[in-house]
Amino acid sequence: MIYFWVLTIVICAVMLGSAIMALYHKSLAVTVIAAGLVSLLASILYLILAAPDVAMTEAAIGSGLSTVMFFYVLRRMRGGENG
C-alpha cells in the first residue's frame, strides 16, 4: 500500500512539473513533448485509480496520436515559433 502512495505522489509531482514546462519552455517541440508526458503519467495514475479502460485510451490517444498531430502542424509553422 505504501508503495502505491509513494508512486502516486511521485507521479503527481512530475505531472505538475511537466505541465509548467509545457507552458514555459522556450522551444515549442519541448512543450509538445512535455504535454505528451503529462498525458502518459496521467494514464499510469488512472491505472492506480482502478480505471484500466481510461488508462488504455489516454495512453493511445492522449500521448500517442495527439503528440503526432501537434508535430505535423508544428512542421508547417517554421518561423512562427518565436512569439
Binding site: D53, M56, T57, A60, I61, G64, L65, V68
Partner: peptide, 25 residues
C-alpha cells in the same frame, strides 16, 4: 482483438480504434 474483447476485458472501440490509427500512422 482489443475491440472484439471489449465486453470481457479492459478495452473496446475507442482504444482499439486508436491502436488502428497508430498502425495507419
Amino acid at each position: 482483438y482489443v475491440f472484439v474483447g471489449g465486453h470481457l476485458s479492459p478495452g473496446g472501440g475507442f482504444q482499439g480504434g486508436a491502436i488502428i490509427a497508430s498502425g495507419t500512422l
